[in-house]
Design a protein around this nucleic acid. Structure first.
Lengths: 209, 209
DNA sequence: GACTGTGAAGCCATTCACAGCT
DNA sequence: AGCTGTGAATGGCTTCACAGTC
């Protein structure tokens, strides 16, 4: 399993393939061809095979892939053969919604801490987690072995809490704030910019006229 | 202003540049060079110039760009020189959070309808919008001139509500459900897949070990 | 016959490097 | 002298097309 440089787009698709395979598993489908996956998720079959080829040979020529086996491989590749504790910084509407989001739990992400600076939010109960003070950041990261942090604070506070997460040893950050934030090279950063997504739609709509 | 095929990545960056310029405006900065924007948002200066070059010549050689002027151009390009009414389908935690998200309002997106199938959610007040029955979809889309729909329903219902949005005449859809959905060619679709984003982090973390 | 795995080709986006203005 | 605008070069991802295997 030589892993040199995998396109990010490939990783995102693997995640989508794995969910599609999960559906097939529930429908008790045993075998699947690259073309089936392709039409199921809206890409080309060559793309599916190429994506998988980065990680090994999982199929049988003339036949296809065993659903259960391929699913297992993908989950392992995606690092989902283990559970991840996640800390959310920012207990506003968005942070709360994410904390309760079933899609995370289903895939092995457990929100074990939710922190905020606002006293009105501290002690609030979100699912089975209690919102705590931002002061506890380092302590919670350490004791819960947290590698993944989610930032859902206002733009003005985003860089500051990010720096705190990094200082506490968090290695991967999912940023929902509408601000470009900077992290050291060894920390993985992804941005989910809600406004940008709507604006891409707006751009394309405006084009059509 | 010849617009043939603009890379999606360029559009996303324009959105980010525009927000950066807005910050500069507030700080009363008058002029900005491509290198300043670049370091502000974490791309190369050549990238900034190339992105802008798709749409015209906005700068002055030897000087840079007038902040206010460039900002205006970008907002126009992004279709943000007008307001957009937005309908949200799914009044769960995520749908509610998005309905209240300030970042949308700030950029001219107004959530004018929130619909759900669940009677327990109907009549609930979210901000100044009342959750209504999914049955009203077509009526609301028509009377509010809605072009943009946001889907925050469970995976199993995603394709169904998408089809209803399309049938009602919605031209752009932002899908938050963890399911691949299909739309006709003339409808613009973007997916914000929250789990996929976490899984890309997980993949990269798992690699490092 | 059917479908995988993969080198080669094609395509698209980014970076380079410099001519052109101010 | 400084910074933009842009053709050319580069790099990377996707598609093609087919040899290899069951």
């Amino acid at each position: 399993m030589k892993v040199y440089k995998i396109p990010e787009a490939t990783v995102m698709r693997l995640s989508i393939y794995s969910r599609f395979l999960h559906q097939l598993l529930e429908d008790e489908v045993n075998t699947v061809a690259s073309g089936d996956i392709a039409s199921g998720v809206g890409v080309s079959s060559a793309q599916v095979r190429k994506d998988l080829a980065y990680f090994g040979e999982f199929g049988t020529r003339g036949v296809g892939y065993k659903v259960e086996e391929l699913y297992g491989h993908l989950m392992k590749i995606l690092g989902l053969d283990q559970n991840w504790n996640v800390i959310i910084i920012g207990a506003g509407k968005l942070g709360s919604a994410l904390a309760l989001y079933k899609g995370f739990e289903d895939r092995g992400f457990k929100v074990t801490s939710i922190l905020d600076v606002d006293n009105k939010r501290i002690m609030k109960q979100i699912g089975d987690v209690t919102v705590e003070s931002l002061d506890l950041l380092e302590e919670r990261v350490r004791e819960q072995g947290i590698k993944i942090g989610v930032v859902t604070v206002p733009a003005a506070a985003a860089q500051d809490v990010t720096d705190q997460l990094v200082a506490a040893g968090v290695k991967a950050i999912l940023n929902f704030s509408p601000r470009v934030i900077k992290v050291p090279n060894d920390v993985i950063l992804r941005n989910v910019d809600l406004s940008v997504n709507l604006e891409v739609l707006s751009f394309n709509l405006a084009l059509q006229k």
